[in-house]
Write a protein that binds this DNA or RNA. Structure first.
Length: 581
DNA sequence: TGCGGCTATTG
DNA sequence: CACAATAGCCGCAG
């Protein structure tokens, strides 16, 4: 079947820009499509699945319904980047919270079926229940409504017809998800979040394939300056290690046997030289630098050990490809509040390594980071008019400090402390003034705190469910229980802010991704409040403008009332580490 | 072998 | 060491 005839059939079936078109693709077998009232499948032997998807994208630009980011990854690897998607896993996590989102679970929860009765995989023809579809006893549904284990276990997609059925099921899930989103407190906003979260999955698939441009020679020279040349043999590695250890142990009295990698033994070692500490964390040792030369040596050792074990030659070998791209796995909505996460050190690369992140020849980075995103987000989601007024200033903490009658540093720790749930220290002393100046914002945070303490689930501004796990009061003592309750309160309080910030960030990233494709400007790193865009030097200014414009558009779409201002610090630089402006 | 504790790195 | 994350090694239980 030719690509053009498939496109024509889909067009006749009413598929157009933005309409749901479910996709199931398995390159060895073929591809299945499903839209309302229309299903099709094409075998790989008859047509290249990726080329077919590309043709449909070019002609119709539907919103592709995909079971998960795996589909997007397969497409990107095949060179196809679609504009929009409806990612069932991403929307499932939005609706129901949590992390687990295998097809059987996604299906069950959206159909309000009990999770306990999800069938577990078994031998194919043993104990398998008949389908509840009499016309199709081999079909995917059991009489109890669950998907049959054979259909969810994987490895079954052996024919194009199976893929078409799988696409049909995806479409049904998407429609049910949309119906559930429509019942939420703010249906339009929840649907918008679902679309942005789905697009984030597309972006994650692209980030994983594209990687972060990194100069291996520079990276190796930075590593070399901290831990020395790359060892050529195992013996050399052992000797280098021993030498590093010796630099510290040389300050200790002779005869002792201490493993510097064991916190307990480091504590003993410090006691040997007359220093007693409850733990050996760097910030604590920092203050004791002058007490004994061993402390300084230990701090230097720790830094080198970190590079040696985590961000050293092994790290480069494992994650930096021959093409000069650092690649990790990306997750679009991870953890407590749905932030993006990445492996391979992409989110926690030491600042010392960042000079090695260099744009390719003829290219630059557009680096943009959001200023004070969390308090600005708090102003928006809580609707606090006084805090919203403060966001009009480029430095939000200046008007807050004036309002509270304290210096800027105090205002900052107070605001951050309020969002984190801090109850002691310098910032907390200003809490009463914060409450009287910004009562709406503070009430919003307190409500999140109370829900958390009571183990009641929360929803973010964009509609993401924050599940509050219930603890077992019988298993812990009274004091421990109270401390856990307080921790849940801080968790709930912060998840509302952090989660909403993640939602705004993804809307921003999605717009940059969409607008940037025309300039061939590509996002190569997402870092919670920072975007790194790799662009041709010829289009540097246009790309920078695009990133700034995208933020204003994102803010307008995400919080249309417009009372809160969002600001980005944007610069065009050859290296990630280069100074702003 | 798996897991909690400790530590360091980042936003 | 407030909130979140990834990741390595040690020590201990099974």
């Amino acid at each position: 079947m030719s690509a053009s005839s498939v496109v024509e059939e889909l067009r006749r079936a009413g598929v157009q820009r933005g309409s749901l078109l479910a996709l199931a693709i398995f390159s060895e077998v073929g591809v299945g499509f499903a839209s309302p009232g229309f299903t099709a499948s094409v075998a790989t032997s008859a047509s290249d699945p990726a080329a077919l998807v590309q043709a449909i994208e070019d002609e119709l630009r539907p919103r592709w319904v995909e079971w998960s980011g795996d589909t997007a990854s397969a497409l990107v690897r095949a060179g196809v980047r679609v504009a929009t998607a409806w990612d069932l896993v991403a929307v499932h996590r939005l609706l129901f919270g949590g992390w687990r989102a295998d097809p059987a679970r996604v299906w069950a929860q959206v159909h309000e079926l009990p999770l306990q009765t999800i069938p577990t995989a078994g031998p194919r023809n043993l104990f398998s229940l008949p389908s509840n579809d009499e016309a199709d006893p081999e079909g995917p549904r059991q009489p109890d409504g669950h998907l049959r284990a054979e259909w969810t276990a994987g490895g079954w997609h052996t024919t194009p017809e199976h893929l078409a059925r799988w696409a049909q099921l995806a479409l049904e899930v998407a429609q049910r998800q949309q119906a559930q989103l429509a019942q939420m407190a703010n249906p339009e906003r929840a649907a918008a979040t679902a679309r942005a979260e789905s697009t984030a999955e597309l972006l994650c698939a692209e980030l994983a394939v594209d990687g972060l441009p990194m100069d291996r020679a520079i990276a190796e020279s930075i590593i070399g300056s901290i831990i020395g040349e790359r060892p050529r043999t195992e013996a050399e590695a052992v000797s280098q290690r021993g030498q590093r250890d010796g630099e510290v142990l040389g300050h200790a009295p002779p005869g002792g046997q201490f493993d510097l990698r064991s916190p307990g033994q480091v504590k003993s070692l410090l006691r040997f030289v007359g220093i007693e500490v409850p733990d050996t964390r760097a910030w604590r040792l920092e203050a004791l630098r002058d007490r004994h030369p061993l402390v300084e040596a230990l701090l230097v050792w720790r830094k080198a050990e970190r590079v040696s074990t985590t961000y050293g030659y092994g790290w480069l070998d494992e994650n930096l490809g021959a093409s000069g791209r650092l690649r990790g796995t990306w997750s679009g909505s991870d953890g407590a509040a749905g932030r993006m996460t990445a492996s391979a050190g992409l989110h926690n690369m030491p600042a010392d390594m960042r000079p090695a992140v260099v744009a390719e020849p003829g290219h630059v980075f557009v680096r943009a980071d959001l200023g004070q995103i969390e308090p600005r987000v708090l102003a928006a989601i809580s609707g606090d008019p006084q805090l919203a007024r403060a966001t009009q200033e480029p430095d939000l903490y200046a008007p807050v400090a004036a309002q509270l009658g304290v210096d800027r540093a105090t205002a900052k720790v107070a605001v951050l402390g309020a969002m984190y749930g801090q109850t002691t220290g310098h910032g907390a002393q200003v809490l009463p003034r914060l409450r009287s100046s910004y009562p709406v914002a503070m009430a919003y945070l307190d409500a999140g705190d109370r829900s958390g303490q009571a183990s009641q689930d929360l929803r973010t501004y964009g509609g993401r469910l924050i599940r509050m796990g219930t603890s077992n009061p019988n298993e812990v003592g009274e004091r421990e229980a109270r401390s856990q309750e307080a921790a849940r309160g801080r968790y709930g309080r912060n998840a509302l802010v952090q989660g909403a910030a993640a939602e705004l960030f993804k809307v921003w990233a999605a717009i940059v991704r969409a607008r940037g494709s025309a300039l061939d400007a590509r996002i190569v790193l997402c870092l919670h409040d920072e975007l790194l865009v790799h662009a041709s030097a010829d289009h540097a200014e246009a790309a920078a403008q695009l990133v700034d414009d995208a933020l204003q558009e994102a803010a307008h779409r995400w919080a249309p009332d417009g009372s809160v201002r969002f600001v980005a610090d944007t610069s065009v630089i050859p290296r990630w580490s280069d100074a702003k402006d």
